[in-house]
């Protein structure tokens, strides 16, 4: 059995009187892509927001490699190696690809306190990372994010997570509003991230996208886990859809 990376235990979340999550147990192992599926309002976003520090659980515990951790905000999550790729908000669109990749961890050179950014190194590393994540187009690392397409922006965010060794990369609906090629691009980035040793949680509206990329499927229904070990190679899209809508019980 694979090693456990993140385990969420007995997670409950109430928004006022609405119970968004009901006693959820959810585990991600090292080096796997987990697809999180469920109808609108099933609680998928709430669950991963608890992991990424955007939402605090009402009760329940989170363990990383067996150690219990508190995740109170995004900074905590990043410190614990959990990086969430939002479609837009995690990048500074005015800054270049390279400056975004290294934001907050800029390599420096020069003497003592009179140090400046090592922009040559940043640009070289950024080019290499963009290739590694699977961008085949030749985009200069000095290009501002505002000039990139939605898929390319996600590539930058994924590349940053990979470079700074996030153990778990979370993508909530990353393929929304993307064209066909862009979607294939994002799926490729996710696969590359797994192949270089990272785990991913992948949420998508389009169940076909999920089937193309994940190793395991977890299904949420009305805030409860109704299946947590579906192998996409052994089930059809149709069968999983039935689990999501409650017509089939696993």
């Amino acid at each position: 059995m694979a090693t456990e990376l993140v385990r969420m235990e007995n997670i409950n979340k109430f928004f006022g009187r609405v119970q968004a999550l009901n006693n959820v147990n959810f585990t991600v192992y090292e080096n796997e892509i987990v697809g999180l599926l469920g109808d609108n309002g099933a609680g998928k976003s709430t669950l991963i927001k608890i992991l990424s520090g955007a939402v605090l659980q009402s009760s329940g515990k989170i363990y990383i490699r067996g150690q219990e951790v508190d995740i109170d905000n995004t900074t905590d999550a990043i410190k614990h190696g959990i990086e969430t790729i939002y479609q837009d908000s995690a990048l500074v669109t005015q800054l270049s690809i390279a400056r975004n990749l290294f934001l907050g961890r800029e390599p420096l050179k020069g003497p003592g306190f009179l140090q400046w950014m090592d922009q040559d190194k940043m640009n070289v590393e950024a080019s290499r990372l963009m290739r590694e994540v699977g961008i085949t187009k030749n985009i200069p690392p000095t290009t501002p994010i505002s000039a990139l397409s939605g898929g390319e922006r996600q590539a930058v965010a994924i590349a940053r997570a990979m470079y700074f060794d996030s153990d778990l990369i979370i993508l909530d609906e990353p393929t929304n509003n993307l064209g066909v090629e862009e979607t294939h691009g994002v799926l490729r980035f996710v696969r590359n991230a797994r192949d270089s040793g990272h785990s991913c949680i992948f949420i998508a509206h389009n169940i076909h996208h999920v089937f193309q990329v994940v190793d395991r499927i977890v299904v949420l229904r009305r805030g409860e886990v109704v299946a947590d070990d579906i192998d996409p190679k052994q089930y059809t899209v149709q069968e999983v859809e039935e689990v999501i809508t409650g017509m089939r019980v696993m």
């Binding site: 900074t75 500074v92 934001l103 907050g104 961890r105």
Partner: peptide, 22 residues
């Protein structure tokens, strides 16, 4: 050229994203 300058631009461009990066 400096890290401080990168932070200045990031703070003005998207302060919550910048904050999340430390």
């Amino acid at each position: 050229q400096s890290r401080f300058g990168n932070w200045i631009q990031a703070a003005g461009g998207n302060s919550s994203a910048a904050h999340a990066r430390g």
